[in-house]
Write a protein that binds this DNA or RNA. Structure first.
Lengths: 343, 343
DNA sequence: CTGAAAGCGCTAACAC
DNA sequence: GTGTTAGCGCTTTCAG
């Protein structure tokens, strides 16, 4: 496999009998070059299958037309967000490069360094720790997770970062309200990471405050024992369910951290002879495609994840291109209650 | 937001009172530089938070330490493969950049161009059309799909490409054999794309020939009507199930294209009053994590998708680094039958 | 052992 | 209008 010589501007220029800059200008759509020369150059370029060298251009321009996308993991929770990003970028000349952090600040820091050394023109991130972004000097738009509310009180927080999130607080409040209508105060909740030092944990606490808010609105006292933390895998979801069953009456309402984990919860409940929704009412979170296909079909909170990705992308591109003045762009999507048969 | 000046080798050199080349050599671990100077340079570099400029280095070296990863979509079927890739690359200095093709040759071609113009040092690909790779002059390792067998006969095919695949033929043969044991000739199969002009379609035909092989081994004549094509989404899976139910006895065996679509199939069967596995025996394909959590838990063919990703990655890196002599690296993983309660 | 200098492919300022 | 040229940050050869 002999090394194939790549086609350069110079090669085209030589063949066309013009200078490199004429070719460069043509390639970049400058109108300085007369139509005839233009045509000739373009046709030769096509014929030689020319592709500009990204590195050379990036080096020269100080920008790369690459967008860094930081996600916690490759697990399927962010697929729709990623699709939204890809779709939105298709109409631009930006290309995404994805890096995963395993929800670990160390990986996140190194991911950021890698991206900046490319250098990417901007970053879309589902963050692990806000600290990692202290010295990032390219535009960043946070997605899906962000301390947009005070995790204790649920009050909106004013910040100066760009973000696009779903209002998890409201989602949880609405879901809890629905369950209260059915089960009174007998409403349990499975949440993810309890660690408030991570953005993921803060998100869970924001959700908890939405839950508390709903209780408060119905004059139901909050019971710490109704909250099961660290539902962070299918397996944990099943364990938490087993644990819950030791402490609970036959009939109750349960909010699960997300739709995926609901599969484990439902399976565990059914194995233990509970019937859904007769004994237990269940509400998930996300509205995955499969939610309407499992049995019983899953009542859930719909989050616009695809739109979340495309919206964040549009924001980022507009910030990059307009050299935005520092006015933060913040979008909060309102979630929607979707009733199916698990409640 | 004032543009932050990036730290260059020159900046470090100036501060350390040495030349750029001394710094460069130090950074690249050359042993030409005496320990004392080395230390000093490294400490200054750390202090100034130096990161090499990727573009400059790539331009100079003609390689980028970036691996392009081409996948058909962002849907969750390739998560484990991607995890395997990320994990395997972690121990190297290569960074992956993911591009999706939507299973469309047009997108695939443009994805390849983009990658080559970076230029990436190698490509990992779940291909759409083999033609797209004709003029690719960097090492490529194909994953998961490849015409490794003749789609008509199921016979192994000799080629000169690098690939890592699961032996779908064998998987399908084994699964069919198991169903035949239970249901005799009453075994149906849901497959994906029928189009043999795409690699995805060829894969499905290879699977079909595994199915036929099993029938043949049990002297059961092949019946075209037992094959339902184009099971390419949850929705289609449900439609195919509805269609199937019009033509079938109460009791039969059914092989579904993959685990995910099995969710739709099972739900449709249950809605129509069929009991699993009493009336219908079902086998999926993939062995997703959720397979053991849905009810009934899903009997399936286990594919080592994580290992597939990491194995392909190791191959690619070794090819890149050793300037491999052209001896193709081809790995075929044997799938495994996993019995649960849907059969 | 050290540093000066060339040049990777490209763009844009500037001269013709 | 068109071409010449400097230089982006880095590596590496080669002379000192």
């Amino acid at each position: 496999m002999g090394k194939i010589k790549t086609v350069r501007l110079l090669d085209i220029a030589t063949k066309a009998g013009v200078s490199v800059s004429a070719v460069s200008k043509t390639m970049n759509g400058s109108d300085e070059i007369p139509e005839a020369t233009r045509e000739k150059i373009l046709s030769i370029a096509r014929e030689m299958d020319y592709h500009p060298n990204f590195s050379a251009r990036s080096l020269r321009l100080g920008r790369s037309r690459i967008i860094g996308v930081i996600i916690p993991n490759n697990d399927f929770s962010y697929n729709h967000v990623l699709s939204g990003i890809s779709k939105a970028l298709e109409e631009t000349d930006y290309t995404p490069i994805f890096i995963s952090t395993k929800d670990d600040p160390k990986y996140e820091k190194s991911a950021i360094k890698k991206l900046l050394s490319i250098p990417v023109d901007g970053i879309l991130s589902v963050p692990v720790s806000m600290d990692s972004y202290k010295n990032v000097f390219v535009p960043v738009v946070f997605m899906s997770r962000y301390p947009y509310r005070n995790p204790r009180t649920g009050e909106p927080v004013r910040t100066n970062d760009n973000y696009v999130v779903t209002d998890d607080y409201e989602g949880q409040r609405i879901a809890t309200t629905e369950l209260i209508k059915e089960c009174g105060g007998n409403v349990y909740i499975f949440l993810g990471s309890e660690n408030t030092r991570t953005v993921a944990g803060i998100k869970e606490h924001i959700r908890l405050s939405g839950y508390k808010k709903a209780l408060e609105e119905h004059d139901i006292p909050f019971d710490e024992g109704h909250v099961y933390w660290n539902t962070t895998s299918l397996e944990k979801a099943c364990e938490n369910t087993q644990m819950l069953l030791k402490h609970v009456e036959k009939s109750f309402g349960l909010m699960v951290a997300n739709d995926y984990f609901s599969i484990g919860v439902i399976s565990t409940l059914q194995k233990n002879g509970y019937s859904i929704p007769d004994d237990v009412k269940i509400i998930g979170f996300d509205d995955l495609e499969m939610a309407s296909y499992i049995s019983p079909s899953l009542t859930t909170i719909h989050c616009a994840r695809y739109r979340l990705g495309s919206c964040a992308t549009q924001h980022l591109v507009s910030i990059i291109q307009s050299k935005n003045t520092g006015e933060a762009i913040q979008t909060i999507f309102q979630p929607k209650f979707v009733k199916r048969s698990s409640m």
